[in-house]
């Protein structure tokens, strides 16, 4: 168990150093590098989808496939919970 803890400390330290250096070397907060796609969506969301809310336009219109997969995941999770607890009847 002691060796396991030592290995955990080593792995955690490596990952911690990696994350902190990556956070320090990221581009500055609030100044994104490229913004073409989002500028297009912001400019055209009222014309193309008729919605005032840009996020809803992205969720249901521009990227509807993501929402379809997400709904499938939610359905599968509920089905999994039902399958887990169905045997406990009595």
């Amino acid at each position: 168990m002691l060796t396991r803890n030592i290995a955990g400390v080593i792995v955690f330290s490596i990952v911690a150093v990696f994350f902190i250096f990556t956070a320090l070397l990221m581009h500055p907060f609030g100044v994104p590098d490229e913004s073409d796609m989002d500028d297009y969506i912001i400019d055209n969301t009222q014309e193309e989808t008729g919605a005032n809310n840009g996020v809803t336009a992205v969720v249901f219109d521009y990227r509807g496939f993501d929402t379809l997969g997400e709904a499938t995941v939610l359905f599968a999770a509920v089905t999994g919970v039902i399958v887990l607890f169905r045997r406990l009847k009595k």
Binding site: M37, I41, V59, R63
Partner: peptide, 11 residues
């Protein structure tokens, strides 16, 4: 601000 990261975060 960008709408696409917000939509993906919602998902």
């Amino acid at each position: 601000s960008f709408p696409v990261p917000q939509a993906l975060t919602l998902t």
